[in-house]
Write a protein that binds this DNA or RNA. Structure first.
Length: 510
RNA sequence: GCCAGGGUAGCUCAGUGGUAGAGCAGAGGACUCAUAAGCCUUUGGUCGCCGGUUCAAUCCCGGCCCCUGGCACCA
């Protein structure tokens, strides 16, 4: 049994969850479920990042303690998970004691090793925004934008991590581990980035400027800032669980790949003497080009509204079917409806319903044993074998959108098989050979359906369960064995009907 | 500016040195078990532009145009 530890990025609790948050959870869950059903020992972690300036400010604005603010917003993020049918094993908050303990321990260790040192940082500071500014923040004429108020150049003592010392090591590591980052071109970007010399990383903030954070164990006048806090969650969550670390995959958004996850994180681990993760998957963003959504025009699109209206599986299916992992994609209601109607409702849902209906009408609701085996059945079985054999490697390579496309082709061909066999004609015939072919056709379509939903069950788990239930089938524990074409359904009592993905009601006119 | 990826049917994309493909959308047809679904047939493209290599280029090379993403101390 292989250990498979997968994580999402932890979400910053300074706002409500949106489509991007939902996507990352769903993508990670699909990978986790896929590995789990293949027999890996999966540990799936997600969580929230609760420290920092913005949280402190938001809490202050509302006149409540930061911890209370975190409690409220964290609950909102946590509540998202069951709504999306996410199978995370753990949920970490960076304000938890287990996390703070590990962060302080690692910081102390690195300090003892001389990897962290005190130095002075000089820069332009905005009192109003309570932050240092960069040259890129300037107006074209060199002045500072109005929003920063008075800007003064100040010097501040802070602690620095010796990032630079490990630059060559990281380049070597990436050269030797070509597939560390997915997609591959992202790894090239990292190497490009590493052609410039790194600066050491400022990891602290004086407490007079930032109170809401984890205090440095070797200097109580400072808290650690962002990276040693947020990134270490992946390790702190499992530090007391033997055999889990290192992570197998960190799933993150492309915006936090370089430098945090691809540069800071490997170097932090290396410096601390901890094993490195096996890989990083950097996904793209959902865009909303085209018609701009707005509440005033009544076409606002909230992901959770889609879940409520069309079901969690339709939502998960769309995200995974539409997005090529690593690339960006448009999210439009039109495209959602196209996938929903043509693939889920018409191709799959209708196939379920017609199979149940015909089995009920022509075989008393019991799946018969297959009779004569002809070229038609052999053809469909051959397609199934090819579909399954292509599907699994595609999922291993994160090509879920292509894999689902293959599954859809199989369903289309199953529909075509039914047309060619025309059980409704066989059912009206008195000839014994027609009755035998009828049994074959009913057994074949039910089996094809069982196999198809089992194949895609990591994307649409609730649908797979529902379909197997109406087919009267309780799956065994061995997923791969369930993917063999056979006679498991013979004698099963099926439900009379099921409308899986109902067509949306036409808008009612007032 | 530098680096990377890309410009192929209305839309989303696949593709190969030798008369261009899929899905969806559009059109027509036969059928009726079914969620007016499913099946069959079909309209549709100067494969970004200009040169070059080649018997032959959408696919190789050069130049150009356009789009997207990345370029650190910023969850």
């Amino acid at each position: 049994m292989e250990s498979f530890y997968i994580t999402t990025a932890i979400d910053y609790v300074n706002g409500s969850p949106h489509l991007g948050h939902a996507y990352e959870k769903v993508l990670t869950d699909v990978i986790a479920r896929f590995r789990r059903q293949r027999g890996d020992r999966v540990h799936f972690l997600t969580g929230v990042d609760e420290h920092g300036q913005k949280v402190q400010a938001s809490a202050k604005k509302r006149g409540i303690p930061p911890q209370q603010f975190c409690d409220e917003v964290s609950a909102e993020f946590r509540a998202l998970l069951p709504k999306l049918n996410i199978t995370n094993d753990d949920f970490i908050r960076t304000t938890e004691a287990r996390h703070q303990r590990v962060v302080r321990q690692v910081l102390q260790q690195l300090h003892d090793q001389g990897q962290i040192y005190l130095d002075e940082y000089r820069g332009f500071y905005s009192t109003r925004q309570e932050q240092f500014l960069q040259d890129k923040d300037r107006n074209p004429d060199g002045s500072w934008p109005e929003i920063y108020g008075e800007v003064t150049e100040i010097t501040e003592s802070n602690y620095f991590f010796r990032l630079r010392q490990h630059q060559e090591w990281l380049v070597d590591f990436l050269m030797q581990n070509e597939h560390f980052i997915f997609p591959a071109y992202r790894q090239k970007q990292v190497l490009e980035f590493l052609k410039e010399p790194l600066n050491d990383l400022c990891i602290s903030r004086p407490r007079e400027r930032l109170e809401w954070g984890i205090r440095l164990p070797f200097d109580e006048n400072y808290v650690t800032y962002v990276w040693f806090d947020a990134l270490l969650n992946y390790y702190s969550a499992v530090a007391d669980k033997p055999g889990v670390w290192p992570a197998t995959i960190h799933v993150i958004g492309k915006d936090i790949l370089v430098p945090p996850h691809a540069v800071y994180w490997p170097i932090m681990l290396h410096a601390a003497g901890l094993p490195l993760p096996k890989g990083i998957v950097a996904h793209g963003w959902w865009l909303q080009r085209g018609a701009k959504m707005s509440k005033s025009t009544g076409n606002a699109l909230n992901p959770l509204d889609l879940v409520a209206e069309f079901g969690v599986d339709a939502f998960r299916y769309f995200l995974i079917r539409e997005m090529n992992v690593g690339q960006d994609s448009d999210f439009t209601l039109e495209q959602f409806m196209v996938r929903y109607n043509s693939e889920l409702a018409n191709n799959l849902g209708n196939l379920v319903n017609r199979t149940l209906n015909m089995t009920t009408r022509f075989a008393g609701g019991v799946v018969p044993a297959a009779g004569p085996d002809t070229e038609l059945e052999q053809g469909l079985r051959a397609l199934w074998a090819a579909t399954r054999d292509a599907f699994i490697p595609l999922c291993e390579d994160f090509q879920f959108h292509t894999a689902l496309e293959r599954a859809m082709v199989f369903l289309t061909e199953t529909n075509a098989y039914i047309e060619k066999r025309a059980p409704w004609k066989l059912g009206k015939s008195a000839a014994p050979e027609d009755a035998a072919l009828l049994r074959t056709s009913l057994a074949t379509m039910a089996e094809a359906l069982r196999l198809a939903v089992t194949l895609i069950q990591h994307v649409t788990p609730a649908t797979a369960d529902k379909v197997r239930a109406v087919l009267g089938h309780a799956p065994g524990p061995d997923w791969k064995a369930e993917l063999d074409w056979g006679g498991r359904l013979t004698g099963a009592k099926v439900a009379p009907a099921l409308v899986l993905f109902p067509r949306p009601a036409p808008p009612t006119k007032p």
